[in-house]
Structure formats: C-alpha cells, structure tokens
Design a protein around this nucleic acid. Structure first.
Lengths: 199, 199
DNA sequence: AGAATGAATATTTTTGAAATTCTTCATTCT
DNA sequence: AGAATGAAGAATTTCAAAAATATTCATTCT
C-alpha cells in the first residue's frame, strides 16, 4: 500500500515527537524512531538528512504552532492595548507550558538554543513583527501617539524578554512575588500610550 | 614577620582573583593559588573552608563593587528620570564589561549562576531596592505620579533584565540593530511618568 | 600556644578503549 | 524504476581505571 512521501514524512515527525515527549531527546535513538514507524533506520534518511535535521523540523513545527497562536491574538478584534495584554499573557503561558508541563521538551529548547540558533532568532523576529502589527494598529486608530513602529516593537520585545526567555523565566519561577505578565504589560502599554518627549 | 589574619586573607583573595582573570576559574588550582601566595595548599584552608567558598568570596567582592557603583548613580543628584537613565546605562555597561572585556570572568558568572545562586538573587534584590530608591524620589518630588513603589521597582527590574542578564545580553550582542539601553530606559521612564489607569 | 606544613585521603577530571548510535551505500524488493 | 533494507563504516557516548585536584589532619615550626 503506497503511502505518499508526505504521509511517511509526517508519520516520522509524529512518532519522533511522541518519543521525544516520552523519553526525551537524548534517549531517543534513530532505531527507536524507525521501529515506532515500522521501518528501517536507513529509511529515515530518505526523508531527513540527519537526526539533527529531523529535530530541527520538529522544533520548527512547535515554533510554528506558537507563532500561529500568537498571530491569532495579534490579529484578534479589540483595542491595541487589549491585544497587547493578551499577547504577552499568552506568550508567557506558552513559555511556562514548554518549560514545566513537559520537562522533556526543555531538552529541545536547549537543543534549539545551541544548534538551532538561527531558527530561534527568526522566531524572535516574527514575534517582533507581531508586536509591530499591534502597535501599528494602535497608532492608526489614535490609541497610541505616533512613533517609529519598528523601533517601538524592538524595544517592547526587549522589555518582554523576561517573560519568554526560558532561562530567565526558570530563574524567577520560585520567586512567588515576581512581576506578573500583567504588570509588565501595563508598563509597556502605559509607555506606548504616553510616548512623550523623545529621549 | 607576623602578618595579620586579615592581611593574609586579603592576599589570598587578591592572588586568586589575579589568577582567575589570567587563567580562568577552571584552570586555577589551589596549588597555583598557594604557590602564588608563597604558602602551602593546606594553609589556604585555614582561611577558606573550600575552593568554592573562596570563589564565593571573590564573587561577592565583584558584586559588591558593582552594587557600590550602581548605588552611587541611584543616589546622585538630578531628576529621577535622569538617574534612572544613567542607572540603566551603567548597569548595561557593567554587564558588557564583565561579559566581553574579560572572557575569563564569564566562567565566574556561570559559577555564580549555578553554585552561587543565592548571592546572585540577593544581588538582584539589591538592584531592585536601588530602583525603588529612584522611583520613590520621583514620586515624592512629583516627577512620577503616586504608585506602589515596591511593585513598580519589581516590574522595572523585570523589564530591564534584558540588559543585565549575561545569557540574554550575549545572545543579542551581534544583532547590531538591537534595542538600546536608552530606548528601554525611555520606555520605562515614560511608563512611570504616566502611570494611568491601573490594569 | 598558634601558625604552617607535608603527607595521606577523598573527590573530581581525564583518558582511552569498548559499546552504542548515526549515517552511508550496495543490494533487494515490489 | 523507485522504495526499502541489511550490513558496513563513522562518529559519538559510556565507563572504568588512572591522573589530577581538593581537602584533612597529625606533626613540625616559631
């Protein structure tokens, strides 16, 4: 029964992610994956040039999912302030999920931070663009005073990094008096609403 | 020639820091240190219970120096806004210095982040207190509208973490279009000046 | 006595060979 | 022919012994 190339590829991605979540990245071998897929190790290599590339693909998928979720928030109805708040809340929540709900996935984050550095950077750029979308809307509707949207997005992103960088978030986790996403969002929204004298 | 306990202790700290800066933390042995001090390895242990404790003491010194520098800025003359800007600039500069000017010192940061976690946390608390000093002054002079100073300090600290967390700073280093300390300071100052509706 | 040490012990790091895992490719299967 | 594989070769990881380093302590020195 001929499965399409695409189907097989997806099957591999699916099974691999399952194994990663169950046993962790390090303990999952290509043999494990090929067995789970009911094929030979060698066959995996007809679809992915290396284990690293396979892992990258999974990271990309995860990241793409996150971006989709965030994109929906950025483009949802409501005022710019409302969306910005929601955006920051969701971003924080996603980070927490990936950090805590599944410790195994954290290995993937580490992998991404080292080998997959470019993908991560692109991800941050995309988030920046989403900030820009919201801020641009806010300026156009008069909710925020005019400003250099691109710079503003970059600055907001930097200020919010404390909520999406795994290392930073992890460090602050057991400080139960830490600044909340809501407080940081309020800070950012306040600044955008009242952008006064240029520095 | 009887040196005082205190003198010997300082000699050890001095020589050890010298060696750390030259050869790095990992490659410096207790033997190296005792030789540099002209004494036996065993004698080091009369002053410090372990290599780890000795390193902690050095970290504390470095951190204390940073805090002193920042404290001066926080308590300098000028408006709260001016001091806040300067504070953030100096904090960023210090981080850059410790990160780049001396790669060897970075090992110490890593050490501090793992073994010396409590010291680091205290350091962050002190910085938070310095933020609180500036913000409190701003509120008292009417430069900032009234607010919960402690919460504001915590939030500002979180937003500025992107400028003082070594990992984060390092990551953004080769992005030459990154948000500047001045931009982030402007964001924060704007927010403080116009703290409007509570969230 | 208190300061300092050399030598002994405990802990950590390094090393190199064995085992595991990744990757390739000539061959088989459909 | 294209899909898939088993077996061979590279690369990486593991693990235990050896080396280096940290730490202790009985003894020496002043």
């Amino acid at each position: 029964m001929a499965h399409s190339q695409e189907e097989t590829r997806n099957k591999i991605l699916e099974e691999t992610e399952k194994l990663y979540r169950h046993y962790g990245y390090a303990k999952t071998t290509i043999s494990d994956i090929s067995e789970a897929c009911g094929m030979s190790s060698a066959n995996i290599y007809r679809f992915f040039p290396s284990k690293s590339a396979l892992t990258e693909a999974i990271c990309s998928n995860v990241i793409h999912g996150i971006e989709q979720r965030l994109s929906e928030v950025a483009n949802s109805p409501g005022t710019a302030s409302e969306r910005l708040l929601k955006f920051i809340q969701v971003m924080y929540q996603v980070t927490l999920e990936n950090l805590l709900d599944n410790r195994k996935v954290h290995e993937l984050v580490v992998f991404a931070m080292t080998e997959q550095w470019l993908t991560l950077r692109t991800h941050l750029e995309h988030i920046e663009e989403l900030y820009a979308v919201i801020i641009k809307d806010g300026v156009e509707t008069g909710e925020f005073p005019p400003c250099d949207v691109a710079r503003a997005a970059k600055t907001v992103q930097a200020a919010a990094v404390t909520l999406c960088h795994p290392e930073v978030v992890a460090m602050k986790l057991d400080d139960d008096d830490r600044a909340t996403p809501e407080e940081i969002a309020a800070l950012i929204i306040n600044a955008l609403k009242h952008r006064a004298t240029e520095l």
